[in-house]
Design a protein around this nucleic acid. Structure first.
Lengths: 215, 215
DNA sequence: GTCTATATTGCGATAGAC
DNA sequence: GTCTATCGCAATATAGAC
């Protein structure tokens, strides 16, 4: 009478230590990022993995540590997809567009959305988790973009005082009300076409602003 | 042996129905916005109000309904502070600056931060709460700004295709990584001086972009 | 006060590696 | 066989909705 059928081979095969650890992390991700830290139950994780509760405690120590491990891992994995581009021979707009597309896709991915929700909910109570998330996630992305902007600045292609701040503004535009609505579950994540359109508009504003050109 | 000392007069005074309701909402705000929906306990709210246990259930029905009521109320109250400005005789930059200052102050207020955390955490599980928050909060703010932008557009002061989208971008810039860090508890809310500086920079980018002027 | 959920721990049984 | 990781299950304890 198994409620949710665990992986069929989970019970009969014996997995090596590291393998079980990975399996637990994977299952825990799904549960924690969907239910939130407080809403998640160790029991549910076990059911998914097919092991015993004891395994979790011997591997991680407790619920908190499991959550921390999971966030650190997921933050790094997800954000690796928003790396600074090779900008040889590219213009500012093209570079921003490419970065924007990557970043927005990441922002719309289910894992990222779950991370967002879970970490924001628990940030005040688990500062180390919040720290790990920010540094490996949004922080790294904005630093990467800032570096790129600095190169353009050195070439005289753009005119900014603070490249870090500028990068954060651009990313802020990508994380606007539409993103908030997706985070809140009020609308579906953007399609690839909608992402392209959104990024296009953001690049336009970021490059030239909204002021009417002197006619 | 009261742990947290309830309001001294809470116990001895008998309050009218509406008054009690307000008192409960007030206490619930403090608890829920600090601990999050799942972390909050009805017991704690009762202790703070000092009333009888049944009061909450007869007034609101249950934990969920209390949370919903509280979010609806707080969203409206807080966001009322970011109303569309009277822009008679003002320029675009000045208007954006004023709006930006108001909005950023709201964004940095403890109540707003608590709302953010709690609603984002629960959004997927309580769609009506998410909806109420967004409509009364961020949604209303961006609509207000969009209307103002449209007036400027009509005058030819700015050049945009979609005023709603543009408004969301500006607000997005205000809700950038710095705001995220505050939400996560990784840094203290901005001081008034820092807010002014931040808004100034955002207005600059939004108005003219970062492209180097053709020399 | 009742009842349910759930984190945590203890401990003996067991399966595979060597 | 020994060893180590894991399992399965029971017991404890606490919290919290109603």
């Amino acid at each position: 009478m198994a409620k949710a059928q665990p992986n069929a081979d989970a019970r009969r095969q014996r997995r090596g230590g590291a393998e079980l650890r990975t399996a637990i992390l994977q299952a825990a991700s799904e549960i924690f990022l969907e239910e939130g830290y407080q809403g998640a139950s160790i029991e549910a994780v076990i059911e998914k993995v097919g092991g015993s509760k004891r395994a979790i405690y011997s591997h991680f120590g407790g619920k908190k540590e499991l959550f921390a491990a999971l966030v650190a891992e997921a933050s790094s994995t997800v954000i690796g997809q928003t790396s600074p581009e090779n900008i040889e021979g590219k213009g500012v707009s093209d570079t921003l567009r490419m970065f924007g597309l990557q970043a927005t896709r990441v922002l719309m991915a289910p894992t990222t959305l779950g991370l967002y929700r879970a970490v924001i909910a628990e940030g005040m109570r688990q500062p180390d988790v919040a720290q790990a998330f920010f540094e490996n996630g949004p922080g790294r992305a904005s630093k990467g973009l800032a570096q790129v902007l600095e190169q353009f600045q050195a070439r005289g292609a753009i005119s900014i005082k603070d490249s870090q701040r500028a990068a954060e503004r651009f990313i802020g535009m990508l994380r606007d009300d539409v993103h908030l609505q997706v985070v809140l579950g009020l609308r579906a994540p953007l399609s690839e076409a909608e992402i392209a359109e959104s990024v296009e508009q953001a690049v336009g504003v970021f490059m030239h602003g909204i002021a009417a050109p002197p006619s």
